[in-house]
Design a protein around this nucleic acid. Structure first.
Length: 325
DNA sequence: AAAAGCGGCAACCGCTTTCGG
DNA sequence: ACCGAAAGCGGTTGCCGCTTT
C-alpha cells in the first residue's frame, strides 16, 4: 500500500530520455545544483535553462520552450544520478573493479548504493546491472568449475569472523583516509584516471556531448571556474571531472571536432565540485560517522570528490591485501 | 536476407527511510 | 510525537541491438 507513484499523473512523460530533455535537465542543475527535484519539472519549463537549451537546439527551440520537462521529479533524479551526473565512467568494468564488486557484494550483500560508494565512477544501477548480467554468471561458472566459489569455500564461522575483521579494517581505513590532509587533485586524480581505454559514453549522452561541444563552439567565452579540478593525462591532455570528458577523451568520438573535447565541459559542470564538498564535510565524516553502516553510505551522489578518492585507493589496496582474491 | 533468440542496460515501480512542518 | 511528502534504494521490466539459425 504505497502512495500512488508520482509518475501516474496525466501528462507526465515516461520512457527513454531524449538528448533535448537531458540538456534541459543538465542546464537546470547547472544553474540550481542537484537536489530539490520536485521543482525541476516545473522550473525547467519556464526558466532560464530553456534559454540555455535554445543554444543547443536552435532548431528544436520552439518545442523545447513550449514543452519543458514533462518528467516526474523521480525520473529527473534518476536520470541525473545514473546517467548525467559528472564523473560517471561508462563502458567496460576493469578487472579491479570487478574484483571489488565481487568482494563488496560478499561483504555487503545487494546493497548496491553502498557498493557504489567504493567505486566512485560507477552508479549503483550500473553495478547492479553488471552484477546481474556478468558477475552472477561468472561466479556461477566458477562454482561449477571449482566446486564452490572462493567466498563460499570459507567455513561459515570463519567467514563471519572474516566479515567482522573486514568491517573493522574498512572502518580503520576510512578513518585514516578521512583524517588525512586533503591531497592535491593532481595527485589524487591519478587514482581516478580511467585506467583503461574502455570508458565510453554511449547513445544519447554522446549526442549531448556533441551538442554541448557545438554550443561551446558558438559560445565566445566558456564559463570559468571549473578548470581547477582538471588534471592531465599521460598524453598531456587536460581532463576535468565529468562523464562527458571521460567518454569523449578516451573513445575518440569527438576527435574530429575542432574544439578539443575537454574544453568547456569542465566549466560546464564546475558546480559539481562545489556541491561535492558542501554535501558532506570532512568534519561531518569524522564526527562519529564511522560506524560499519554509515561509514559505507556517508557519501552522497556527488561521489568523485577529493574526500572520496582517498578511501577508494586505500580500501582498494586493502581489498587486495586481505587476500581474498 | 529474414526471423528468432538472447543479452545488456536504461528506466520504472514500489517499498523504506528521512525530513520538515 | 505525529503525519505527510520527498528522497533513496533495490528489484524488475521492457526496449533495442547483436548474434545465431
Amino acid at each position: 500500500m504505497g502512495r500512488p507513484p508520482c509518475c501516474d499523473k496525466i501528462g507526465v512523460k515516461k520512457g527513454p530520455w531524449t538528448p533535448e530533455e537531458d540538456i534541459i535537465l543538465v542546464s537546470y542543475i547547472q544553474e540550481h545544483g542537484p537536489g530539490n527535484w520536485r521543482s525541476v519539472p516545473t522550473n525547467t519549463g519556464y526558466q532560464s535553462s530553456i534559454f540555455v537549451a535554445a543554444f543547443f537546439f536552435r532548431d528544436a527551440y520552439v518545442s523545447t520552450f513550449c514543452l519543458g520537462l514533462l518528467r516526474c521529479s523521480k525520473s529527473c533524479r534518476l536520470r541525473w544520478t545514473n546517467y548525467l551526473r559528472p564523473g560517471i565512467k561508462r563502458g567496460n568494468f576493469t578487472e579491479q573493479e570487478e574484483k571489488m564488486i565481487i568482494h563488496l557484494q560478499a561483504l555487503l550483500g545487494n546493497r548496491w548504493a553502498a557498493i557504489a560508494n567504493y567505486l566512485p565512477q560507477r552508479t549503483d544501477n550500473d553495478i547492479k546491472n553488471y552484477w546481474n548480467t556478468h558477475l552472477k554468471k561468472k561466479l556461477k561458472k566458477g562454482e561449477n568449475e571449482n566446486g564452490v566459489s572462493s567466498f563460499q569455500s570459507v567455513p561459515k564461522g570463519q567467514w563471519e569472523r572474516r566479515l567482522q575483521t573486514d568491517i573493522r579494517m574498512a572502518k580503520q581505513a576510512l578513518s585514516e583516509a578521512l583524517s588525512l590532509e586533503k591531497r592535491s587533485f593532481s595527485t589524487d586524480s591519478e587514482d581516478l584516471k580511467p585506467s583503461q581505454g574502455t570508458s565510453t559514453y554511449a547513445s544519447s549522452a554522446e549526442n549531448i556531448s556533441r551538442l554541448l561541444q557545438n554550443w561551446m563552439k558558438t559560445t565566445p567565452e566558456p564559463v570559468t571556474g571549473g578548470g581547477g579540478a582538471g588534471h592531465r593525462t599521460e598524453s598531456g591532455e587536460t581532463v576535468t571531472q565529468g562523464s562527458f570528458i571521460n567518454g569523449s577523451s578516451s573513445d575518440g568520438a569527438l576527435s574530429d571536432e575542432t574544439t578539443p573535447p575537454h574544453q568547456g565541459f569542465g566549466s560546464f559542470f564546475s558546480f559539481s565540485n562545489k556541491s561535492c564538498h558542501e554535501s558532506v564535510s570532512v568534519e561531518q565524516q569524522n564526527a562519529g560517522l564511522m560506524t560499519p553502516e554509515n561509514s559505507i553510505v556517508f557519501q552522497d551522489e556527488n561521489k568523485p570528490n577529493l574526500g572520496d578518492q582517498v578511501p577508494l585507493t586505500l580500501i582498494d589496496k586493502w581489498l587486495l591485501d586481505v587476500g581474498l582474491f
